[in-house]
Write a protein that binds this DNA or RNA. Structure first.
Lengths: 332, 332
DNA sequence: TTGAAAGCGGTACCAG
DNA sequence: CTGGTACCGCTTTCAA
């Protein structure tokens, strides 16, 4: 049986209350008493029971990390999420908080996340992959659950957002292509029910508008296969394109493969720029010129935000935008 | 305030005990009573508080998922783990159990995991990345915590292991190279404090021994950079090598890059076979011939094992070995 | 079959 | 500053 406050109290000849005060570092204990309790604590190898503590204090020291998806193998299919999760795990590591991992289906029962919150007395939630129009966001707001959204702006006292400068990144990418002399530049866009999809499209448009260049856009689904198909559609419709900005590295790899299939050389016949800068961007040939998404840092930032909120009761900054950066390699 | 059993009991005009029985599906409640309670449950939107339940029943319905590592960005640097975690998340999804994510440093305080277990009343643990000689394993055994080890055999009533047939995979890879006519075959081995490192080395040795071929081994650290350096060392020491079996895809990519730097064509001048079959294996040029590690399935299997143990109180099979498979592409 | 009461292991509150 | 006691929400035990 585990050793409890009562065991410690008996050994140190004090009340359970005093033990609790010592354990929680409340500075209202006389030094002599404190030492006696500390000794008993060590001798018995006391470990506070977080469950019991959570029950009473209504704060279980747990952060929920929620993926919204129906897909199996989701972490494999959305590789940037690995980096986000890695950042969350690292940032939570030295905190008092534990991470509870959960994936829920979009539009499942909108209260699924809130239920999780209630049932496990979760203190705050980090929500990833929230498409626009996701009902969970409203649900969480309505239930007064503090949460941080990755890659989607949000309004509300108890909500914050961590995202990257997607528009700026896209802008830089397309400006770079223009600067390299391209005048017919296509876009393989991600799905537009994602905030980053919308923003990357906006950046592309802005860069073209600055020079009065024509648009050539296909929409795809973020996947490698999607990128492959999309390049075909794009070139069939606009054969004069000499460069394509692709809204994700995974799609860019697909597009690169499609270009190769068509006998096009990258970058000589077709310049390609991706977005994300995942590990494999340096593995493909030619190495992919892409926009670096600070996914790991987004995870770290999201965790610090929610942790800070749990301490201070508020978010100092409701919308954190991390910079992106064009990484020039050889594909454009 | 959340609605409790007492609220439900009051509304349904029964005792809290009866409500508890209904919620937990115990078949000792009269049908009429049950219906009344069910109605009250629905009307009030009752959600059982898992914390309180765990406190009383000493079973918090939580599985700990533990990474042993000091490295930051660990999920990024050990990409196969993403697949394992994805499998764990998917398998746990429809269970009653939640996943608690935690990373601990090797040789930190050996009782870190046990403490986590006690403090959060965790029911079972899935341990990944346990090097050989890891003290956590003993610690968990000594404390009677049920656990599943990924990729490391283990003894004990309350322990099980899920791993892949690393030796068989290596054997198949090297036999394939021999069959293709290679007689001077090198190995870039992973670190030997990993079970899979030892096994892949053993498979390589066995295949060579079958034909009386000479060995040529360098040890590396699983990383891309490590693979790059290792290929250099290998070729400097054994210039006649025409093929190299590389114990991980990440190292294989590094080796492929090193070969390219040396002006060697793959596979004409140097055949390369990897191990893992991660996503990027099909992205490099030439596409990597490799051994498929069923990492996702290992995560699923580990979860089912621990879940089964929590139900039955035992592991039906203490050492689950999943098959590996040679995937022939173009690098060999 | 149902109900009343006693905890699980902490923390909050109040009295001394 | 310290101790006693109620109580968080649920399950378990035992009696009716």
């Amino acid at each position: 049986m585990a050793v409890t406050v009562r065991d410690v109290a008996a050994r140190a000849q004090v009340s359970v209350q005093t033990v609790s005060n010592v354990v929680n570092g409340r500075p209202i204990v006389a030094e002599a008493t404190r030492q006696r309790v500390l000794k008993a604590l060590a001798e018995l190898g006391y470990q506070p029971n977080a469950i019991a503590r959570g029950l009473r204090s209504n704060c279980a020291h747990t952060i929920g990390v929620v993926f919204i998806t129906t897909e199996r193998r989701y972490l494999v299919r959305a590789p940037y999420l690995n980096e986000v999760v890695s950042g969350i795990a690292d940032a939570a590591r030295d905190s008092e908080y534990e991470l509870l991992l959960q994936s829920v289906a979009p539009h499942e029962h909108p209260s699924a996340v809130t239920q999780l919150f209630r049932r496990r007395q979760i203190d705050g939630v980090i929500l990833t992959s929230a498409e626009l129009g996701e009902p969970y966001v409203e649900e969480l707001t309505a239930n007064d659950v503090p949460f941080v959204l990755i890659d989607r702006p949000v309004a509300g006292e108890r909500a914050a957002c961590v995202r990257a400068d997607n528009r700026g990144g896209a802008l830089a990418a397309v400006r770079y292509l223009i600067q390299r002399g391209h005048t017919h530049i296509g876009l393989i866009s991600g799905a537009l029910n994602w905030h980053s999809g919308v923003e990357r499209l906006a950046g592309y448009r802005q860069a073209l508008a600055e020079r009065g260049l024509p648009e050539a856009v296909t929409h795809s689904d973020w996947s490698r296969e999607g990128g492959h198909c999309a390049l075909g559609e794009l070139l069939d419709q606009w054969p004069k394109l000499t460069a394509v900005f692709v809204a994700s590295d995974l799609m860019a790899v697909g597009a690169m493969e499609a270009a190769c299939t068509r006998g096009l050389r990258v970058p000589e016949d077709l310049a390609l720029v991706g977005f994300d800068d995942l590990t494999f961007a340096t593995m493909v040939r030619p190495p992919l010129t892409t926009v670096r998404l600070p996914a790991y840092d987004m995870g770290v930032e999201a965790t610090q935000l929610i942790l800070g909120h749990l301490t201070d009761g508020r978010f100092p900054q409701p919308d954190v935008v991390l910079p992106t950066e064009l990484v020039v390699r050889e594909s454009a």
